[in-house]
Nucleic acid binder design. Structure first.
Lengths: 172, 172
DNA sequence: CGGATTTAGTTGAGCCATCAACCAAGAGCG
DNA sequence: CGCTCTTGGTTGATGGCTCAACTAAATCCG
């Protein structure tokens, strides 16, 4: 239980409430828009895209599964399923690993590399058009600072768990 | 196609890139945390919770399906599936509508109302702890303004489509 | 060496989201 | 009335996410 006994509910102030709802709305719409654009124009999900971005930023376009999972902050299971689907579509390949025979290298295929190089500009364009073009320079900085602060706070809560909260005893 | 021919990619500036990645990270972690807390403590998803919040804010705790869909900005199909699952768990009920015999009223059950009243304080507590307690008053205002601006921009792009982008010709 | 523990990664079940197709009731109109 | 169009809502297929359980290789340690 996160909160066993709640003494005083401490409701949100009106302007906090407004900010929270606006944030939820922005987030839902932005995510939906990015996903739709990716799917419609290139048949990719944001998840596909993110995996390929990580791979393409590494020399040889190859990474170990857990390395990738840590970089993306994904559960290994989620990533494994994702990789299976991407492999079926020929975007990546699994090649086995001589250093550690349990392990696997995940490699971006030529087709995968071409796909992401084609898709990336359109994606950036959407992010620019609907986010950065709408914000002032100060707002961009504010968004960065806010996001960093909240992300760090959440990191501090789940201290250094690799596979986040894998046992029953969640971070609390 | 969103971008048929791309002349100059217009990549993101370093500080924009940083802000964007931080935003994605915050969002992923915050969403995951909220979902986990809800699921672990009350067996609810955020989707369940959101639906019940809408219903509970209406007199009699009942709404028509499309009214609910519009209020939440969900596709009607998504909502319909969601309602089916919630009905199976006894959180809501469908009762048929005398005014329009195609339609249905969605009603919060007693169990549903109790559930959300129990769950709400814990949810708010998490939002407060990991978001608002971390931010200054100025940052809260900034977050509200940023979110509103971006959400409005996205609204303007998909002008007044109820069921967002239902045909092949997506908003753009 | 040999047994216990940890680490790397996969698998399956169940819930959630999206898309396209569908059905039935109302509304407009000749 | 009867025909079409629109609206309210559901359904099925498919892909994605989470949790728990599992396999197999590596490591630790006596």
């Amino acid at each position: 239980m996160t909160q066993a006994t709640i003494e005083a509910p401490r409701w949100l102030e009106p302007h906090e409430q407004a900010a929270w709802r606006a944030y939820l709305e922005m987030n839902a719409k932005l995510t939906a828009h990015l996903n739709r654009q990716m799917q419609a124009d290139f048949g990719l999900s944001i998840a596909d895209f993110s995996v390929m971005v990580q791979l393409s930023e590494h020399v040889d376009g190859r990474m170990r599964v857990l390395e990738l999972a840590r970089a993306m902050d994904w559960e290994k299971s989620r990533l494994s399923h994702q990789l299976t689907r991407m492999q079926q579509r020929g975007l990546i390949e699994r090649s086995n690993c001589s250093e550690d025979r349990r392990g696997a290298w995940i490699v971006l295929t030529d087709h995968g590399r071409k796909t992401i190089e084609t898709a990336a500009p359109g994606h950036v364009e959407v992010v620019r058009t609907y986010l950065f073009d709408v914000l002032s320079a100060d707002q961009v900085d504010a968004l960065g600072a806010i996001s960093r602060a909240v992300a760090d706070r959440l990191d501090a809560a789940c201290t250094g768990v690799v596979d986040p909260c894998q046992t029953a005893d969640t971070c609390d």
